[in-house]
């Protein structure tokens, strides 16, 4: 048995009488902290709405998942629904639609008619980004996602493209210039 018997520390008489030395020792620690705080030497919590940590976010920060368009303004998503299947909390809901034959991107064949991400369910795991064969879904650095109702917390396609914006210079497999 790996039992370690720990002896209680033997206290001296002035430590037992509590007021004499231990109170002083304790006060030295707490007041030391207080003095350092009052001098402004202690690093404390960020005052959130006034100060933000946006400029300190790491490169790999996983914020809100968004949809992106490429440099020709084509939506990258081809509604393969892989992200919908991989999503652990089942936050993504896609309704695919066909691209009509008179469209310049008709050869892509499919694009999402509706693309909803429920931000109440989303756990920011980044699996959708990982699994996307078209590099259409990206996790951006937005973290303050708020809304006053459940319906507001569901990001629809327009909202997703609005946050996502344009991503250039990735795979351009549907481009003519390839």
């Amino acid at each position: 048995m790996a039992t370690v018997v720990v002896q209680r520390p033997k206290l001296k008489w002035h430590e037992k009488a509590f007021v004499l030395s231990t109170l002083w020792k304790g006060l030295k620690i707490t007041l030391g902290h207080a003095v350092r705080m009052l001098q402004g030497k202690t690093k404390v919590t960020m005052q959130y709405p006034e100060q933000k940590w946006d400029d300190q976010l790491p490169e790999w920060y996983r914020g809100a998942p968004t949809l992106v368009t490429d440099e020709q303004g084509r939506e990258r998503c081809v509604s393969c629904q892989l992200c919908e299947f991989i999503c652990p909390p089942k936050a993504i809901k896609i309704i695919p639609s066909e691209i009509p034959s008179d469209d310049p991107w008709a050869k892509v064949e499919k694009r999402p008619k509706e693309f909803d991400i429920d931000m109440i369910r989303c756990i920011y795991c980044g699996m959708c980004e990982e699994v996307c064969p078209e590099q259409a879904i990206f996790l951006r650095k937005d973290y303050a996602i708020t809304g006053e109702s459940r319906a507001e917390m569901v990001h629809n396609k327009a909202k997703l493209y609005e946050i996502g914006g344009v991503r250039e210079g990735l795979v351009n497999k549907w481009n003519e210039l390839k």
Partner: peptide, 10 residues
């Protein structure tokens, strides 16, 4: 407030 400054809080 006193508790906060002794515990490095705001």
């Amino acid at each position: 407030r006193g508790a906060a400054i002794m515990q490095d809080r705001v």
